[in-house]
Design a protein around this nucleic acid. Sequence first.
DNA 1: TGGTGGATTTCGATC
DNA 2: GATCGAAGTCCACCA
Lengths: 219, 219
Amino acid sequence: MRLIIARCVVHYTGRLSAHLPEGLRLIMVKADGCVSVHSDVGAYKPLNWMNAPNNITVSDDVWEISNPKGELLRIELKEIVSDADFEFDRHPGLQKDGVEAHLQELLADSPQALGEGFKLIRREHPTQVGPVDLLCTDAQGNSVAVEVKRRGEIDSVEQLSRYLEFMKDDPQLKSVRGMLVAQEIRPQAKELAKKRGIDWLIVDYDELRGMEPSKPRLF
Amino acid sequence: MRLIIARCVVHYTGRLSAHLPEGLRLIMVKADGCVSVHSDVGAYKPLNWMNAPNNITVSDDVWEISNPKGELLRIELKEIVSDADFEFDRHPGLQKDGVEAHLQELLADSPQALGEGFKLIRREHPTQVGPVDLLCTDAQGNSVAVEVKRRGEIDSVEQLSRYLEFMKDDPQLKSVRGMLVAQEIRPQAKELAKKRGIDWLIVDYDELRGMEPSKPRLF
DNA sequence: TGGTGGATTTCGATC
DNA sequence: GATCGAAGTCCACCA
């Protein structure tokens, strides 16, 4: 990884045009050819960037980074304050816990959290327009298509609506209804769900993790 | 901006849990207290990060960065390869050109670009599920709900469909129809629009910029 | 290779 | 502070 602190002017043309007037910034060049320009504010987003694969040409104090999509990043170096290169070992992967997949897993283990008498029929139930997260039956034995999200938004309701549109034609299923389950649901998503006759439920991740599974797990 | 190259172990707990085993990485600490951890791959995303505002406590070789939302980033420094600090001037802003807001503005100025006899009723017309970008009338005086996008995709059609779903219940509006306007529209979005009876129109940004406004602007 | 859906999305505007 | 939509979103997965 090469780290350059330099006074520079930056231009990007591609999906839009963006221009940075002269100023002191960090230019980061990674082992895979990625280039990013950082200011001294904001942890996440660089001011400008070019993801790999890139073609980098350097002539005098002008860098031109281009990619096959026709995007171009042009960096004019006015004054270099620092220039350092470091050799990194291959990065060991990042381990994550608590994302949607895990939430779905917990609910599959404890379908009673969705409602009394709920039973899991199967996970990732296929439809013509994609898999439904959880297919359950309620206490009355009617089918319930469950869409699991970390955060429920309007798109989640749309997605579930599409599934239901197709599932209602499935003679195997008995009067299927939809349920959006998330740790948090936006008001507009609730509005739309209501209009579409879709139930919604807020669940607590930590609470779920502490629940007794309806069936003991194998590990 | 402080740049540390170090062999380190990182843990994040907050919206989820994430763990990085020991490895050589870049730790970036910005003037506003933002902290990010970068590997040598990928321009855009840090492996871990904490956006401002943060509380940073350092004891020996362990950094603990916490924020008011209860998130915690813990960095255990095993070996420091490099540690450098730089003073940046205040960042001059990034200028962007060609984004959706600007496109909407141009179309509001020149509604005739949408069709002969088109007139603007208002921008950001509210519905229960969000505001419609432009509400116009066509030459016949019928309402047209216009969704403006840089790039029209399936979601854009879904979004416009939702608006229409609610607008059709509005007695104020006369036989409202929808129109998707973008610099580029995906084939699948055109398909879906056609199926939904929604018109679509490709507009040229530079051409629009050169158009005579239907009403002169005040600046 | 293109489409789809998730993300510690982030970011900005608006209420 | 909450909410909502855009983003040069990025990214992984899968057909």
